[in-house]
Amino acid sequence: MKYLYYPGCAMETTGVPIQMSIDAISNVLGIEFETMKDWTCCGCPGEAINELAAVSLAARNLALAEKSDLDLVAPCSCCYRNLLGAHVILSEDRKVRAQVKEALAAAGLEYKGTVKVRTLIDVLINDVGLELIRSKVKNQLSGLKVGAYYGCHQSRPYGPDHPEFPVWQDWIVESLGAESVFFPLKAQCCGGAQLFSQRAMVTELVARLLNNAEVHGAKCIASTLCPLCFTNLDVNQGRIKNRAGSNFAMPIVAISQLMGVAFGLPPRDLGLHKNVSPVDKVLAPYLQVRI
């Protein structure tokens, strides 16, 4: 199984623990990633106030990806959505297509429209398969109640999982021997980049969904691979009260980190020592060494 890989800017900063665990589990599962050469920002940060700029920058990356015939995997949900979104807009909208063609030509590039953009979760479910994942589990995560958190862009608006009540991460959680807990806000927004400008609003959004997961019995969150979602949940807890009225301490792990724990990989290889939320206690029964 070989794929072209688009890490995205945040995977090199806040997403480092996620990237470490992705490397570790893909090694176990036999997934080979060829990182795109000269990839640049997907354009998503410009989307709100300049859609044409966002689509054009995404198209630059698509044009480079097109030189390979491998599927393009983007683990960050925002990158995935913006790259796929650009592909969709370019195939549907003639006016935008002409404009983007002109913009790309300024850099000597052209996008013909043939790239298949996918999430890593999609690859894990549909190419790797739960059977293979199950076969690699060394530490059954029995007794662990996990809330799978998806965020928005991994399945909204383009799918391929259900746009409002996605299930694929729950399936992965269950295949590791853990119990996946349903909570209604599992695909609610983390607040994204507005964390910087409207911190109170974003903290409230995070508080709601963590409270919701806690009320439904989750003891930890297996987050989507999006570094924005992961970080917003992981670092914002100090200011939030839980049901009991004390400050929140919900352990947040990326789903790739949880898979690594079940596969028996050393926690340091999974970047678990870099998580801000307290993950050691809840994972200790399944680890041979301390984080």
């Binding site: 900063t13 806040t14 000269d38 640049t40 920002c41 700029a53 054009s56 920058l57 850099a107 870099k274």
Partner: peptide
Amino acid sequence: RGLMPIMPPKPIKSGEIKAILNKV
């Protein structure tokens, strides 16, 4: 935790990006 480097990363293809954005 080393998750927010204070030093900037090397600019990548910023000439190409600027050409595209100027055109836009």
